[in-house]
């Protein structure tokens, strides 16, 4: 078995230590004897929807995000949409999450989005939404907590065709108004919980690994449990930070 991961724009969209997520997936595969393949697709580089099963895109500085939005729509939109329709896992974090929608407002500009999730990101008066955050999400095995950190100026609103990733337990979430956080569509997950989100939530990392392997091999594997004492302690630490 092999987990095949593609990072989208790894040199542009990595502002909050996004590589932590990739490293976390890699080690958890290696410790279980699951092969791990990691590739990157940068500006202008085409994407094949069938080669990889887990796609990742992180957050970037405004300048990078502007360039990536245009390039992604021009060179990757169809392939990413096809992969998403075919059950590929896509984890889009922070700026990457905003790019999943129809459009994203950056300053005075309206950037195009991938349009693979029914959502829109706008600017509203008010401060950036910054801080520790905990949300409750049910990805099929009952409600569980996801803890992390958010830092975004944009406010995201889901359309009728989208459902949220979870409910905000503490923190701001999509727009600081409706109590919702992130988006979920097939195996596509978008969230403002940025940077190394998976290390703080090992259960979510394992869930994504299983989904991606299921797409490749047809059945969802039982992942071998790992000695996760430090992972559990880190999750509790991030939760405590959000709920204190």
């Amino acid at each position: 078995m092999e987990l095949r991961v593609l990072s989208l724009y790894p040199d542009q969209m990595n502002i909050y230590a996004d590589r932590g997520n990739i490293l976390f997936l890699q080690r958890r595969c290696e410790w279980r004897g699951i092969g791990f393949v990691h590739d990157g697709a940068g500006p202008g580089e085409p994407v094949d929807p069938g080669t990889h099963d887990l796609f990742y895109i992180g957050g970037g500085q405004d300048r990078d995000q502007r360039a990536v939005a245009a390039d992604m729509v021009a060179s990757k939109q169809e392939a990413i949409a096809a992969a998403a329709d075919d059950g590929a896992v896509l984890l889009a974090v922070c700026g990457g999450y905003q790019l999943l929608g129809h459009s994203y407002q950056l300053g005075e500009e309206k950037l195009p989005g991938l349009g693979i999730a029914d959502l829109e990101t706008v600017r509203e008066p008010g401060a950036r939404l910054i801080g520790n955050i905990a949300i409750e999400a049910d990805l099929g095995s009952g409600p569980k907590l996801i803890a992390g950190f958010e830092n975004h100026g944009g406010r995201t609103y889901l359309g009728p065709g989208a459902r949220p990733l979870g409910k905000v337990v503490s923190g701001h979430g999509n727009n600081d108004r409706d109590g919702l956080e992130g988006v979920r569509r097939d195996n596509v997950i978008g969230t403002y919980l940025h940077g190394p989100l998976l290390p703080k939530n090992a259960w979510l990392a394992d869930h994504l690994i299983a989904l991606a392997l299921e797409r490749r091999y047809g059945t969802r594997p039982e992942l071998e449990p790992l000695p996760d004492e430090l992972e559990a302690a880190a999750h509790d630490s991030a939760r405590r930070a959000a709920q204190s």
Partner: peptide
């Protein structure tokens, strides 16, 4: 520190031997 477990986890994933890490 206030986020000691997360530091320890980072070291584990950086390849430091787990038995060398205390929180």
């Amino acid at each position: 520190g206030t986020r000691a477990p997360e530091m320890a986890l980072r070291l584990k994933y950086a390849g430091w031997p787990e038995e060398a890490i205390e929180v």
